[in-house]
Design a protein around this nucleic acid. Structure first.
Lengths: 137, 137
DNA sequence: CTAAACCTTGACGTCGGTGTCAAGGTCAAG
DNA sequence: CTTGACCTTGACACCGACGTCAAGGTTTAG
């Protein structure tokens, strides 16, 4: 299939597909005329890549773990890559905690931070000026 | 206090402080020589701003809610802004769910995605080439 | 006088996944 | 032949919170 078809099939733009290839996330053959030719499995590959992007992984990480995603690869040298995925997972756990902490912080501000006088943030209502004529230079 | 002092007091770079001012997050007077002069409360303001940044808020949102952070402001017209904070909070909740979902996805891939044949991602081991001589142009 | 440590504004660089435009080649239909 | 849909590579634009360098002014210490 050509790039336009793959694009329609996956909902990913042609631009993105070329980017994936450039990043080593996607393979393609070339027709005599220079057009990219994709294997049908490319649809799944793109779906996987999208999945990983949605999972918050960077293209570098995805590139590294891709060789492990295929069933044709041995699993021997994949332990390191699996470790990397594990690492990413741990990072996600950390992110979960971070987000939760942020929410808690906001909850705190929502609960009492804006209604008591413990925050010395008075007189900020006019803060929105870039600089009132800084001084004649 | 001058910008360097405020920087040291808050741990925020001078560049960032000027950026905050430019974004309407921080106020300063000007000395005759053009130097910025900060009120002592600025330390708290910067801390608050940092807090909000760490909470994931954008400078725009922070600018909007800042007038409500001071105890000298009425709370009447703040309901809308509080609603905005609430909105951000809700967004964080959504993010929590998203992250959790991502982690679950990765867990899934870690558990079985890489060891069975349900994922048709074979033969990707050589995906890491930008393009093997695209064709003579 | 001079060095050094401050300060000023302005402007460009960063990162990453994509949109978008430019300038062209290819191919099938009319 | 022409049109138009498709493809190619290349390159700039974007967002956001700054880092960093440039080119200068001010003040203090020696």
């Amino acid at each position: 299939m050509r790039i336009g078809e793959l694009s329609k099939a996956t909902g990913v733009s042609s631009r993105a597909l070329r980017y994936y290839e450039q990043q080593g996330l996607l393979r393609s053959e070339r027709r005599p005329n220079g057009y990219r030719e994709y294997a049908p499995e490319s649809v799944e590959v793109v779906a996987f890549v999208q999945d990983m992007f949605h999972a918050g992984l960077s293209s570098g990480v995805i590139r590294d773990i891709l060789p492990c995603a295929g069933d044709a690869r041995p699993r021997g040298d994949c332990t390191a890559l699996l470790a990397r995925v594990q690492q990413v997972r741990d990072e996600l756990v950390r992110q979960e905690r971070t987000i939760a902490e942020r929410r808690r912080r906001l909850d705190s501000y929502l609960a009492d931070g804006l209604s008591d006088t413990s925050h010395p943030l008075a007189g900020l209502s006019a803060a929105g000026r870039p600089a009132p004529d800084p001084s004649p230079r």
